[in-house]
Design a protein around this nucleic acid. Structure first.
Length: 208
DNA sequence: GTAAGGATGCGCT
DNA sequence: GCGCATCCTTACG
């Protein structure tokens, strides 16, 4: 079952957390390439200087201002595609960056797509926002596409059965103090672990 | 295991 | 021109 539009209309931090454990699916050339979402980051207006929409609407970021449940795909460092999911009602610019997946369907095809792009053979298939887009064949052509009606979608996954780590975002230079990254504790497909946050989480749960 | 540097295109100041 | 919401290779413990 695809997640409905109403799922994405919620506050961005709620959606970022709720996306963990769901299944991202890209159907391409008749094949389903999919993976469980294990790491996300929230980007919100107003007040978040790292959000692309911080300074208002532009040609690049306009999708973020539109309907929730659509894909915002842009190119980073001129090389990598980044997949975001638009959240909040129309007019509020916000999105969730998908940072890592646990491969489920089409793992061979993912490896083949990575190799075709000159990437090394190895375990780093979908543990990073650029890598997962390459593995699933997600590019700028999908910018603005609906996740409820197109070839790219998010389905109910296996859910979450363990702790979720909440910590600071990665690879940004502004608003670095905001704890808006979420990931599944102990999942080996997470791109970068934050040991201190994991330790705090363990201590707080022990106290209960 | 960590660190540094290059690749590479486009939006924005 | 400058600066990236990154990834890969190489060097060194």
């Amino acid at each position: 079952m695809k997640l409905p539009y109403s799922f994405y209309q919620a506050p961005t931090l709620v959606v970022a957390r709720a996306l963990l454990g769901t299944l991202l699916v890209h159907t391409i050339e008749g094949k389903r390439l999919s993976g469980i979402i294990v790491e996300t980051e929230a980007y919100v207006t107003p007040g978040d200087e790292a959000c692309h929409a911080y300074r208002g609407i532009t040609k690049r970021n306009s999708v973020m201002f539109g309907e929730p449940g659509h894909a915002y795909v842009y190119r980073s460092y001129g090389i990598h595609s980044m997949l975001n999911i638009v959240t909040e009602p129309r007019g509020i610019a916000a999105a969730v960056l998908i940072r890592a997946l646990e491969p489920v369907e089409g793992k061979e095809e993912m490896q083949a797509r990575r190799m075709a792009s000159g990437r090394p053979i190895g375990p780093n298939l979908t543990n990073g926002p650029g890598r997962l887009c390459e593995a699933l064949g997600i590019g700028a052509a999908l910018n603005g596409e609906s996740l409820c009606e197109g070839t790219l979608s998010i389905e109910e996954g296996r859910g979450v059965d363990g702790p979720i780590v909440q910590t600071t975002r990665i690879g940004i230079t502004r608003s670095t103090e905001l704890p808006w990254r979420f990931y599944l504790l102990g999942n080996r497909h997470v791109s970068v672990r934050h040991r201190a946050a994991e330790r705090l989480l363990a201590e707080s749960s022990r106290r209960l």
